[in-house]
């Protein structure tokens, strides 16, 4: 399915690399974050902050917070895909939700939420998105408002009871 405005963005495709697999025999928990960070980089490109956009604006994106729910193990060489949803934004922040799936049968492997902050690298300090970037952020935020609130968003970590 092509990525239209209201659909989730497909932000990363690849396979589980040998150097990501740990002593438990599957994708190491830190490397789920590596994959989700790659997807965030792709999203940056989609809003105009690829290499050229970063140079032109003098801005970049920092991840302030990240949350991962690990749902299924995945082994080396398995094809995987990340989809990204915009949960919200303001003048300088972008809240995103990403899911990692098996590419073959779409099994949900993990969910990730991130709070991103636009940074003026000359400080470095927080700064509002550049106008061209802001327009794209607002367009995506509005389009994704129609999507349902994802299951694993807004979670805190605690033992039950």
């Amino acid at each position: 399915m092509p990525d239209d405005g209201a659909a989730l963005l497909t932000t990363w495709r690849g396979t589980v690399l040998p150097q990501w697999v740990d002593y438990n025999g599957h994708l190491n928990d830190a490397y789920y974050m590596v994959v989700f960070s790659e997807a965030t980089n792709a999203l940056m490109g989609m809003i105009g902050l690829d290499d050229a956009g970063r140079k032109a604006t003098g801005h970049t994106i920092y991840t302030l917070e990240a949350h991962i729910n690990y749902l299924q193990e995945v082994r080396q060489d398995v094809a995987i895909v990340v989809r990204t949803q915009i949960l919200g934004s303001d003048a300088k922040r972008l809240q995103i939700y990403q899911t990692l799936h098996r590419a073959d049968d779409d099994t949900l492997l993990a969910a990730n939420e991130q709070m991103l902050l636009n940074i003026d690298v000359s400080g470095p300090r927080a700064a509002p998105f550049a106008p061209t970037v802001s327009a794209r952020v607002q367009m995506l935020t509005l389009a994704h408002k129609r999507l349902p609130r994802p299951k694993y968003a807004g979670r805190a970590i605690a033992l039950p009871g």
């Binding site: 002593y23 438990n24 928990d29 974050m33 917070e65 990240a66 729910n69 690990y70 805190a156």
Partner: peptide, 20 residues
């Protein structure tokens, strides 16, 4: 350690939250 895991048990991470 390795011997403990080889015997069939381990600790898996089910949730992570990072603050940078």
């Amino acid at each position: 350690d390795e011997a403990y895991r080889a015997a069939g048990h381990s600790l898996y991470t089910v949730q992570t939250q990072l603050h940078n």
